[in-house]
Simulated assay, not measured.
Amino acid sequence: MDVSCPICCCEVETCLHFARGCGWVGGLWDGLELEVKTKVGYERVREWVEDVWQDYDEGQRELFMVGLWAAWERRNKMVFENKPVQIDPVIRRVRELMREVKEGIVGGFDDAGQKGEGTGSDMEGGRGGWRPPREGFVKINVDAGVKEGCGTGLGIICRDEQGGVLWGWAERRWEVMEPRVAEAEAEAIFLGIHKAKALGYSAVIMESDCKVVVDELRMYSKGRSDLHMVVHDIVELSKDLDSVVWSLVSRKFNRVAHELAHFSPMGESISFDRNSIPICIANVVVGDLSYNI
């Protein structure tokens, strides 16, 4: 049995080697601009972590722990799923996770890794809800509603930094083949990016409550499945924008898109702007704004 590090293949893989001795992880620390102690003499990884911990402030400690988790996640994807271990995607994932923690948009998801209610995160004195994008961005929320015999519904809503509705779209289709949630959600994201590009928006935060799709976008790798094909199209299209953030949210923070995905009659689509918001989502839009007063 080969016990060498599966990434660098230079030494026996131990927790201590992985966290501080492997050159690949060293590149991650450099990319995150974290100085880590490299002196010899540690017998256990805990001793090293405690030593490093003393030199960090609170923000660096959070970044360090998220970095460790993301590095181990990527290592496992390489070993068990034959995914590449490039540094840049891991650094981007760490930065995005840190942003989500700070903005309070990390929700809970079911064991299947797809869509679940989740508890979300408490914000502003125990209240939690949808938040407008930061300055210079628009935020697009998408959702797909799939039910056998009832077709597939797609819902998309785009809002500005004040929470105002810029545009939205909904459609319900009859699926000849058995519909699949992840592919439908990915198609909604593609349509959202396509519309944003057409309207000239260059900085987009894309929010979805489908973990499978968000993970595929964050850790993009080519594949031959239907989902991979749509994800590939999304990634290629998003290259025309200046900035795109893939954000995973709890379903309760994605209520407007959810309502739209279940609104449109079979075989029909609707589009609207701030002057023609459907009655079915008006109260939900106002409710989202109330969290930010």
Rank of each mutant, 00 (worst) to 15 (best):
D30C: 14
M266P: 00
G200N: 00
E43A: 06
E236Y: 03
G104P: 07
I105M: 05
P89E: 00
I140F: 04
E236V: 14
G23R: 02
V181Q: 10
F137G: 03
R61G: 13
S250V: 05
V49C: 14
R224N: 11
E207R: 04
E178A: 14
E103K: 10
E148Q: 12
F64C: 13
Y42D: 13
G27T: 06
T14I: 05
P89F: 07
V79T: 07
G223W: 06
I91D: 00
M1F: 03
A282E: 09
W246T: 06
W246M: 03
S221F: 07
R218S: 01
L260I: 06
S271R: 12
V212W: 00
F253N: 15
K83M: 15
V286A: 14
W246I: 03
L28A: 04
V138F: 03
W69Y: 12
W167E: 00
E175D: 15
F109E: 06
E50K: 15
V45S: 14
R46I: 07
E81V: 03
R131W: 00
E236Q: 14
E259M: 10
I281T: 06
K115P: 02
S250L: 04
V165P: 01
A188K: 04
P179S: 11
D122K: 14
G107I: 09
A144Q: 07
W174E: 06
P89S: 10
E124W: 08
E11V: 12
A112G: 13
G155D: 13
D242F: 15
L97Q: 04
P84G: 09
L97H: 06
M1I: 02
T38K: 15
D110N: 15
V146Y: 02
G129I: 01
C22Y: 08
L191Q: 13
I91C: 12
A203M: 13
L28Y: 03
L154Y: 05
Q162P: 01
K239C: 12
V231T: 06
V36W: 09
Q86S: 05
D143G: 10
D111L: 08
P6W: 06
R218G: 00
L260N: 07
F190H: 15
L154Q: 04
G59R: 13
F190T: 04
V213N: 08
L16S: 11
I281R: 07
G267W: 00
R255C: 08
V235W: 11
H194I: 02
L237Y: 05
R75Y: 08
N283V: 05
G168S: 07
N141W: 11
P84M: 03
M65F: 10
Y201M: 05
E50N: 13
D288M: 10
E135H: 04
G125F: 09
G145P: 02
W24D: 09
S243H: 08
V256E: 08
G107S: 09
R173E: 08
G118W: 07
S238T: 04
G27H: 10
C15A: 13
R173D: 01
A203P: 02
L289W: 12
W169F: 15
I277S: 12
E216C: 15
N283C: 11
Y201K: 10
F18W: 13
I105Q: 05
I281C: 04
G155L: 11
D273R: 00
W169K: 12
L260F: 09
Q86F: 14
